[in-house]
């Protein structure tokens, strides 16, 4: 395991940020961290990076951790390369500054002062700073912030490449497309606790609200595996993907035609909303 954290508790004054949270991240995986604002995700990342002390709990991280939380910082009066050189001099076994600049696509702007850089460039510099530490675990907090769609796609590609090289990545993101695209597992956090954890595919397969219209709603109601609600636009019910599949097949067997079947929102988003509400 790259990370094994049990019963993490942390309060800032009266505000409880972590309330007995568990986190297990498998080595070499890209693990997503999902949850609403204020759920404790960022505090959890700070704990992993050693920036915040725990009130209670045990947090074991295998190997070095690199990365950033919220916006990565940089010294605006230094060039990108100088920024990384300062950090590299503080590490016992740092990576190559030129190489990490290359990897995040900043090589051609590296010798200009960071003060004039865009948010997206500084974001990539933050990733470079994390990689420079040659970490076993890379922690990224909303790394696509400020990136244009192309930059965001490049970032996803970069994360995939890093993971294929054996790096464990913990990705905290609001962008479900991003999580869906790169993460193999997710932990959903709400109110300082982990409320769900498992592979992304399972999260998507969780019961979601569906809207169904058929040729014969009365018969459909009889065949339903779960209670159905009548709405003006059709029948509404909550079931996971497997149950929905069985229901549709059963309807077909009984000669009831399915006219429309819609999920109310993106499955992942819907799963998330249900988990944290």
């Amino acid at each position: 395991m790259a990370v094994e954290a049990r019963g993490l508790r942390k309060a800032f004054g009266d505000v409880t940020a972590l309330d007995g949270l568990d986190l297990v991240v498998a080595a070499g995986s890209v693990h997503g961290l999902l949850g609403p604002n204020g759920a404790g995700k960022t505090t959890l990342l700070r704990v992993l990076l050693g920036l915040v002390s725990l009130d209670e709990g045990r947090c074991e991280v295998d190997g070095t951790v690199g990365g950033f939380v919220e916006a990565p910082g940089s010294w605006p009066y230094l060039t990108g390369r100088q920024n990384l050189q300062v950090l590299s001099a503080m590490d016992d076994d740092p990576g190559d500054v030129g190489e990490v600049l290359d990897r995040v696509g900043l090589a051609d702007r590296a010798d200009t002062k960071v003060g004039g850089w865009s948010l997206g460039m500084r974001q990539r510099l933050g990733i470079a700073a994390g990689l420079l530490r040659r970490p076993q675990l890379l922690v990224l907090d909303e790394p696509a912030n400020g990136l244009d769609p192309l930059g965001a796609r490049q970032l996803r590609d970069l994360i995939r490449v890093l993971a294929s090289q054996g790096l464990t990545v913990l990705l905290c993101s609001h962008d479900l497309t991003e999580v869906d695209a790169v993460c193999s597992d997710v932990t959903v956090v709400s109110r300082g606790r982990d409320v769900w954890r498992g592979p992304v595919s399972q999260l998507k397969a969780r019961p979601g609200r569906c809207l169904l219209t058929t040729s014969d709603d009365a018969r459909a109601r009889l065949l339903a595996p779960v209670p159905l609600d009548d709405t003006e636009v059709g029948l509404s019910f909550v079931a996971d993907t497997a149950a929905v599949d069985r229901f549709v097949l059963a309807l077909a067997n009984e000669g009831v035609a399915v006219r429309t079947l819609e999920r109310e929102a993106l499955p992942l988003e819907q799963a998330l909303v249900e988990l944290v509400s």
């Binding site: 050693g50 920036l51 910082g73 940089s74 503080m90 700073a129």
Partner: peptide, 15 residues
């Protein structure tokens, strides 16, 4: 370092 948000850069190294 607070102003530039660089504490996390400095304090996540080997020192």
């Amino acid at each position: 370092e607070d102003g530039h948000g660089t504490w996390q850069s400095l304090l996540t190294r080997s020192r």
